[in-house]
Amino acid sequence: MIAKFEKVSLAYDAGRDILSALDFNLEEGEFVFLTGPSGAGKTSLLKLLYLALRPTSGRVMLFGEDVTAAPRRALPNLRRRIGVVFQEFRLLDHLTAFENVALPMKVAGVNQGQYREDVRELLNWVGLADRVDARPPTLSGGEKQRIALARALVAKPDLILADEPTGNVDPAMGEKIMKLFIELNKLGAAVVVATHDISLIEALGKPMLRLEGGRLSDASRPAVRKGRRS
């Protein structure tokens, strides 16, 4: 099992619940779309999944470990198994495109010789082979998004989380990215894509989790809401 949410609620600064009593499982090799209106809690749910937040109540299991109260020292190893494409990219402006993509490998202590080719390959694949030394402030939104995608994939994650990954790229690149996610999913990675793009969800025909008012209100896999896989 990749992730298991048990009655998970989340509130910021003791305010109202952003997420309320969520129950769902994410199995290995699963591909799920996460959708819902703005402010429904999609990004918050992703933050719980990529360990940027801990739930206010309930229990979150990731890769078989209870991360609700896990010590800080246990988190880096879990985070290295997750690749995240942030909606706002979150690149480091003072590093080059190459260095940004290589970041997960560098923090894991891998020698550059072991990942140099991988990084170049990914940058080539996302069409930025000629921008390896460019820094994010000089890049367009679409280029930044592609660098963020390459960074998310470079460490070969078991779980890929993407927040509106096609929002800033042209349709052709968007289709290419989704195809890559599907291929990676076929090879075993679990994928969660948060998006407003209903046409994308319909085109791919993958299961969908719908968040509304912090609750899983509707889904194309009803059993998921009850904590079982459909």
Binding site: R80, R81, D118, L122, A155, K156, K186
Partner: peptide
């Protein structure tokens, strides 16, 4: 590219210890 960047057994084993 998907095959190259999928988490194979070797990658998973390598993650067991912090380098």
């Amino acid at each position: 590219i998907a095959k190259r960047f999928s988490a194979d057994e070797e990658t998973k084993a390598g993650r067991a210890t912090l380098r």
